[in-house]
Design a protein around this nucleic acid. Structure first.
Lengths: 115, 115
DNA sequence: CAGTTAATTAACTTAATAGTTAAATATTAC
DNA sequence: GTAATATTTAACTATTAAGTTAATTAACTG
């Protein structure tokens, strides 16, 4: 695998199990057992996937008793988003961007209304 | 490699040579020789990279005499952008999105002024 | 300290990647 | 039809990836 960080990140994302793990971490920290629960795969396999995600800097780990909780680090995704910028004009009209922004504002508004 | 399209796309992007090829295609169609020119790599190696990009549907090819020109297909990048949506809130404040939209509007305006 | 739970490491297998060189194919140009 | 150019395919090598089972480490629990 190429040593550059963008390649590491894309490589880490090129596997459905790893993407599912990331998605699972959007709701907060999880232990390895919790993360492995949805998959028909042994724990060592999950450990390896976590190593790939960690190498790509997409997750960070801590220690809590026997547990090694993981949490999401979104930074590398931001870099992908920035890399994508040079291609946006090829697949996206500028007004779609506004649409999206307005949708986000509405979501924010609802969140604020709720609290 | 996993069979799903998103995995194929991420895999194709996980190599600096392939990303450089894509970037090169943003300025228009190129032949294989033209694409291989910047790289210290044999033609068959480039052919293989093109096959990976083609499998990911990131490029399309035609025939022009001996040449097999390639052009960019941005569709899979759009899918990545959509996939990314679930993570944007983790790395991006909503006003960044507005900033970007306004920048795009300015660019469009300039383009229109020029023509 | 003995036992249990959580997670990792080691050793191994199988398949896929990324590159090479040499040969083959397709098209044009004379 | 022969030669030249552009590109691909074949055959091979070395490395990495993704999974397994079995053994090990780390920390808690009684």
């Amino acid at each position: 695998m190429a040593a550059d960080q963008l390649s590491n990140t894309f490589h880490a994302l090129a596997d459905p199990t790893r993407r599912a793990i990331l998605a699972s971490l959007t709701t907060g920290e999880k232990t390895v057992s919790q993360l492995s629960e949805p998959f028909e795969m042994t724990m060592p396999a999950i450990t390896k996937h976590l190593k790939v995600l960690e190498k790509a800097n997409l997750i960070e780990r801590s220690r809590d008793a026997q547990y090694r909780p993981c949490h999401l680090n979104p930074e590398p995704l931001k870099h992908i988003d920035e890399w994508m910028e040079q291609y946006r004009r090829f697949f996206e009209a500028s007004f779609d961007r506004l649409d999206e922004y307005l949708k986000q504002l509405q979501t924010k508004k609802k969140e604020n209304d709720d609290t």
